[in-house]
Lab assay of single mutants.
Amino acid sequence: DEFHFHWNGRDIRVRGDSEELRRLIEAIKRGELSEEEIERAIEILER
């Protein structure tokens, strides 16, 4: 699976399928994380 979302003017695409990944992306979409937490998560996910 590939998750695709927009954040902070960026087009983010992440491959993978796990419950943890889904929860993280939902939290990002709901605005539950700080900008710094989101940046760090995206860096890890894009590897």
Rank of each mutant, 00 (worst) to 15 (best):
1 D>F: 04
1 D>G: 08
1 D>V: 05
1 D>E: 12
2 E>T: 03
2 E>R: 01
2 E>G: 06
3 F>V: 03
3 F>N: 03
3 F>R: 01
3 F>H: 04
3 F>K: 01
3 F>P: 05
4 H>T: 05
4 H>S: 05
4 H>Q: 03
4 H>C: 06
4 H>K: 03
4 H>P: 00
5 F>Q: 00
5 F>L: 03
5 F>C: 02
6 H>F: 03
6 H>G: 01
6 H>T: 03
6 H>V: 03
6 H>S: 02
7 W>Q: 03
7 W>E: 03
7 W>H: 11
7 W>C: 06
7 W>Y: 05
8 N>G: 06
8 N>Y: 01
8 N>H: 06
8 N>M: 08
8 N>R: 07
8 N>Q: 12
8 N>I: 02
8 N>F: 02
9 G>E: 10
9 G>P: 00
9 G>L: 00
9 G>N: 06
9 G>V: 00
10 R>M: 08
11 D>K: 15
11 D>G: 03
11 D>N: 09
11 D>H: 13
11 D>V: 15
11 D>Y: 11
12 I>V: 07
12 I>N: 00
12 I>Q: 00
13 R>T: 14
14 V>Q: 01
14 V>H: 02
14 V>P: 03
14 V>K: 00
15 R>K: 15
15 R>I: 12
15 R>C: 02
15 R>P: 15
15 R>A: 14
16 G>E: 09
16 G>N: 07
16 G>F: 05
16 G>L: 05
16 G>H: 07
17 D>I: 08
17 D>V: 07
17 D>F: 06
18 S>W: 07
18 S>N: 12
18 S>A: 09
18 S>F: 09
18 S>M: 07
18 S>E: 06
19 E>I: 12
19 E>C: 03
20 E>Q: 12
20 E>V: 12
20 E>C: 13
20 E>H: 09
20 E>I: 09
21 L>D: 15
21 L>G: 12
21 L>T: 14
22 R>E: 06
22 R>P: 03
22 R>H: 11
22 R>V: 11
22 R>F: 09
22 R>N: 08
22 R>S: 10
22 R>L: 13
22 R>Q: 10
23 R>I: 13
23 R>S: 14
23 R>D: 11
23 R>C: 11
24 L>M: 09
24 L>H: 02
24 L>N: 01
25 I>N: 02
25 I>S: 04
25 I>F: 08
25 I>T: 05
25 I>Y: 06
26 E>K: 07
26 E>W: 02
26 E>H: 13
26 E>L: 08
26 E>I: 11
26 E>M: 07
27 A>Y: 07
27 A>S: 10
27 A>V: 08
27 A>C: 03
28 I>A: 04
29 K>A: 10
29 K>V: 10
29 K>Y: 14
29 K>F: 12
29 K>L: 08
29 K>D: 07
29 K>N: 12
29 K>H: 13
30 R>P: 01
30 R>C: 05
30 R>F: 12
30 R>T: 09
30 R>A: 11
30 R>L: 11
31 G>Y: 06
31 G>A: 08
31 G>C: 06
31 G>V: 04
32 E>D: 13
32 E>G: 10
32 E>M: 12
32 E>T: 12
32 E>F: 11
32 E>I: 11
33 L>Q: 05
33 L>V: 09
33 L>A: 04
33 L>T: 04
34 S>Q: 13
34 S>D: 11
34 S>V: 10
35 E>D: 14
35 E>F: 15
35 E>G: 14
35 E>K: 12
35 E>H: 15
36 E>D: 13
36 E>P: 14
36 E>T: 15
37 E>F: 10
37 E>W: 07
37 E>H: 08
37 E>I: 05
38 I>D: 00
38 I>G: 01
38 I>L: 12
38 I>P: 00
38 I>H: 02
38 I>S: 03
38 I>C: 02
39 E>H: 11
39 E>M: 13
39 E>F: 12
40 R>Y: 12
40 R>Q: 13
40 R>L: 11
40 R>A: 09
40 R>W: 10
40 R>P: 03
40 R>K: 15
40 R>S: 09
40 R>M: 10
40 R>G: 10
41 A>K: 11
41 A>N: 09
41 A>P: 00
41 A>V: 11
41 A>D: 04
41 A>I: 15
42 I>T: 02
42 I>C: 01
42 I>P: 00
42 I>K: 02
42 I>S: 01
42 I>D: 00
43 E>F: 01
43 E>A: 15
43 E>D: 14
43 E>L: 04
43 E>I: 10
43 E>H: 10
43 E>V: 14
44 I>S: 12
44 I>L: 14
44 I>N: 13
45 L>M: 11
45 L>C: 01
45 L>A: 05
45 L>W: 06
45 L>I: 10
46 E>G: 08
46 E>Y: 03
46 E>F: 04
46 E>V: 10
46 E>S: 07
46 E>T: 12
47 R>L: 09
47 R>Y: 03
47 R>S: 14
47 R>K: 12
47 R>T: 15
